[in-house]
């Protein structure tokens, strides 16, 4: 079971979280024209990286905050975690 550092609560087991997928996906702004390709990329197309993957988890049985987790998809190692509004450098 993964051991995830919630930036708000500290180290917590995976069962307290729910997964939210690729965090690099950005929703197009409201009320702006979006091309078919851009919309499909947002809704469907995924890079599905092998290696370092920035992804979303929600601390659903804890503080209920959505967080960003940098995790290696080939080893499951977690290198860093971020709050929802933190810039990922």
């Amino acid at each position: 079971m993964l051991y995830i550092k919630c930036p708000h609560c500290g180290m917590r087991p995976q069962i307290e979280f729910s997964y939210g997928g690729d965090a690099s996906v950005k929703r197009p702004e409201l009320n702006k024209d979006v091309s078919d390709q851009d919309w499909d990329d947002f809704v469907y197309n995924r890079k599905s990286l092998r290696g370092k993957h920035l992804e979303l988890w929600q601390h659903i049985s804890g503080c209920r905050q959505w967080i960003k987790v940098e995790r290696d998809t080939s080893t499951h190692e977690i290198s860093r975690t971020f709050k929802a509004d933190e810039e990922v450098a």
Partner: peptide, 13 residues
């Protein structure tokens, strides 16, 4: 609930 939290925390903070 998660859906609303997602948009409030990540998309439209």
């Amino acid at each position: 609930l998660s859906h609303l939290e997602y948009y409030l925390q990540l998309v439209w903070p």
